[in-house]
Simulated assay, not measured.
Amino acid sequence: MKTKTTLFSREITYGKKDVAELENASIKVQLIYDKTLFMLHSHLPDSLWDAWIGVPYSIISSLYKGNNDSGTIFQKWIQSPTGWKCIGCERHCLESTEPLEEENAVNHERQYKFHNGIRQSMVLQAVIWSMYENTVLFKPFLGDEPFFDDDDLHTISSYFVPTYLNEFHLIERSKPCKEYKDQNIRVFQEWISAPDLVLKWNGGLTEGRWMTGVYMDHSRFAGLGPYLKDSKGQRTYMQAYVQ
């Protein structure tokens, strides 16, 4: 039976070693996300981009555009029994829903569509993991410049989680998995065990899994955003302290 940690305030402590690892790993992971997203945008037909990614590339924050000022990036990490794992990345973007001439009108209240980036994140996870497995399998035949170099492969094997567009591979390996569904897109990711938390505060009690958010700003580490995720998927954000 897993041990549950009980907290009496919305504060959670991280060791300096863990923070240093997350700071270094989050940047490497983000570079792989951006690199893969750029490749997909360069090669996918518009119809597939809209179906799979669902966010206009023009408003996505990315190093590979030479402009990463737009949107907020929030990576989701778990301290699993085998180390830190990144299960996804949310890019929060606002897309204007009005014609350009109306946007430029004086005293005009603009209308926007919010993108949470969850579908984009899960498709990216599946694409990256598939390319990782194929690169490892066919590396002797790929020449001197495969899409993922040795450093990328090490980062993926260390911090990414097996993710697929169907559950066959995970069932075949007797791995527990979680299904993510958004419109017509279904993605299956290996279930990663996270520490259980009980939060007692303000006279209430909340139980869930301890997740660690990592904020990225201009593709640099910008701090931790720990949260408790309950059985309904609701988040209770907490304050990170380093010791």
Rank of each mutant, 00 (worst) to 15 (best):
K76G: 01
M238F: 08
T135F: 02
K178I: 11
Q120E: 15
W210C: 06
R173T: 15
P140V: 09
N68R: 07
Y112T: 06
Y64P: 08
R220Q: 14
I32A: 04
K16W: 01
P226R: 01
A105E: 15
V19Y: 04
L224F: 00
F160L: 10
L165S: 10
E102A: 12
Y57E: 13
S96W: 10
K65Q: 13
D230M: 12
M216F: 04
E98L: 11
G83M: 06
K35T: 01
V242G: 05
G203V: 09
A20L: 02
D18A: 08
C86T: 14
I87M: 07
R220I: 11
A222T: 09
D149R: 00
E172N: 13
N67Y: 08
I60H: 08
G71Y: 11
Y237N: 11
L153K: 03
D230H: 06
K76Y: 01
D46G: 01
T3F: 03
P99V: 10
S193Q: 15
G143I: 03
E172Q: 14
E103L: 10
P45V: 04
E90V: 04
K35D: 09
D230G: 07
L165N: 05
R119F: 08
D150I: 05
S62P: 06
L224Y: 02
S42I: 00
M211H: 12
S42T: 04
N166K: 09
A126R: 07
Y132Q: 02
K200R: 09
G223K: 05
L94E: 04
M39E: 09
G117N: 11
N67T: 07
T97A: 14
L44K: 03
T6M: 07
V242D: 01
I53E: 09
T72V: 02
Y227C: 07
C89A: 12
E103A: 08
E102K: 15
T72F: 09
F38G: 02
M216G: 07
F160V: 07
S47L: 05
I78Q: 01
L124M: 13
K4L: 12
D18I: 01
D217Q: 15
W77L: 03
R186M: 00
Y241D: 11
N116M: 15
K178N: 13
E133H: 09
R235I: 03
A20S: 13
T236D: 03
E172S: 13
I53F: 02
S174K: 05
M211Q: 10
K139W: 05
S42W: 06
Q79W: 00
R10Y: 06
M39A: 06
L205I: 15
E207L: 04
T135A: 00
S231V: 14
